[in-house]
Design a protein around this nucleic acid. Sequence first.
DNA 1: TATCGTTGCAACTATAATGATTACATCGAG
DNA 2: CTCGATGTAATCATTATAGTTGCAACGATA
Lengths: 144, 144
Amino acid sequence: MKKFSSRYSIAVHILSLVALSPTSCTSDFIAESVNTNPVIIRRIIGMLKKAELVHVRAGAGGTYLQKGLDEITLLDVYRAVEVADNGDIFNFHDETNPKCPIGANIESVFRAKMLQAQSAMEHELAQVTLRQLVSELKEKTGSI
Amino acid sequence: MKKFSSRYSIAVHILSLVALSPTSCTSDFIAESVNTNPVIIRRIIGMLKKAELVHVRAGAGGTYLQKGLDEITLLDVYRAVEVADNGDIFNFHDETNPKCPIGANIESVFRAKMLQAQSAMEHELAQVTLRQLVSELKEKTGSI
DNA sequence: TATCGTTGCAACTATAATGATTACATCGAG
DNA sequence: CTCGATGTAATCATTATAGTTGCAACGATA
């Protein structure tokens, strides 16, 4: 299957920061918390923007949530940053031999099962809102 | 996240062939149905062997199931060929800034959610036995 | 209006995983 | 003993990711 990139964890980190930070969140500020390069952060913020999860004040700087804490789920974030060509997390060996009755049919049978498994995972992700994440974070950090 | 390699689909293909084929399954024979190099097939069979899903007649040649059709699930196959270092399908950006209260705690909170999602997916995979797969394949191919 | 911090983006590098291929030692049935 | 098949190492091309530098453009603000 395809593995999740660490972009996903960074994206969640970004959204948590934006949600919790009382100060303006510049890419430099976020990069320091994530401990990486600001450009990496901007790239991911770009994806979150396309998904309309955040908006950015150009020139002035700073990233802000574009939706409520309850309207953003882990599934939204996943779809925003995991640019799976077709949306599938599974890769298939294409070009199986069409002359072999099994080679010709195995993919469709297997794919159906995989889509079911993927749906189950995405269903779980859809259950977790940014509000829940942030609330659990607050418990752990004491207070912010 | 991490993406699934196409090894997985090939492994399922191999097991289906071994289960259905009345003749001996050599890596050359399988490679033709999968439409790839025999060495690729042998590598994957090697993983299936380690997982004790199949055994191979060295010298003589041919791969055979080591367990019953009902005792092999898609989860078994997945675990046999997807060599995720730690078993997780999610990657995390490690080394977040420990000085930032969010950076210091986001990973554990996020990881818990991800493990839940992964469990849901694996649960689905565990529901599908090789017998079911083969049975659906037979329907599609008419008969073998 | 000029400045300065910030964003957006292209270009480049390094690294790792994957798939494919060649080559060859080894096994074991006939 | 022979011959087909397996097991495995070595190599290569491709792709994805993460990181980095450089720079144009934006816009708040002084």
